[in-house]
Simulated assay, not measured.
Amino acid sequence: MKFDNAEDIIQLTPLWEGERFSNGRPKVSADVLRRIRRITLEEAWGPLWNRGYKFQFEGDFKIIHPEQIMVGRAVTAVLLPQRPDLHDTLLTYGHEQENRQGFFNQWIIDSLEEDDVAVVDMFDKVYKGTFVGGNLSTAISARTKRGGAVIWGGIRDNQQVANIDGINVYYRGSDPTAIAEVTMVGMNVPCRIGRAVCLPGDVVLGTPSGVMFIPPHLAELTVVLAEKSQVRDVFGFIRLKEDRYTTAQIDGMWTTALWYDFMNWFDTSDDAAEYRHLTWEQELEEARQAESKGPSSDVRL
Rank of each mutant, 00 (worst) to 15 (best):
D4T: 09
A6K: 14
L12C: 08
L15C: 08
R20F: 08
R20M: 10
F21R: 11
G24W: 00
P26T: 07
S29L: 10
S29M: 09
R37L: 11
L41H: 10
E43Q: 15
A44T: 08
R51S: 10
Q56A: 13
E58Y: 14
I63F: 09
I63E: 07
I64Q: 01
I64H: 00
T76R: 13
A77V: 09
L79W: 01
P81M: 13
Q82Y: 07
D85S: 15
L91G: 00
E96I: 13
R100K: 15
Q101I: 12
F104H: 05
I108F: 03
I109A: 04
D110C: 04
D110F: 02
S111Y: 02
L112S: 03
E113Y: 09
E113R: 15
E113L: 14
E114H: 11
D116W: 01
D116N: 13
V117L: 06
A118S: 13
V120W: 01
V120K: 00
V126R: 01
V126Y: 01
V126F: 03
K128L: 13
V132Y: 00
N135L: 11
L136R: 03
T138V: 01
I140S: 00
R143M: 10
T144W: 01
K145Q: 12
G147W: 00
A149Y: 00
V150D: 03
G153F: 00
I155W: 00
Q159M: 09
V161H: 01
G166S: 07
Y170R: 04
I179M: 14
I179K: 00
I179P: 00
E181W: 14
M187F: 12
N188H: 10
N188D: 13
P190Y: 07
P190I: 08
A196R: 01
A196H: 03
A196M: 06
V197C: 08
D202V: 07
L205N: 04
M212S: 12
M212W: 05
I214S: 07
H217C: 05
L221T: 12
L221K: 11
L225F: 03
E227N: 13
Q230F: 07
R232S: 08
R232E: 06
D243G: 06
R244F: 06
T246C: 09
G252P: 09
T256K: 07
L258E: 10
Y260L: 15
Y260S: 13
D261R: 13
D267Q: 15
A272P: 08
H277Y: 12
Q282T: 13
A287Y: 00
R288T: 04
E291S: 06
E291R: 06
K293A: 05
K293W: 02
P295V: 02
R300V: 15
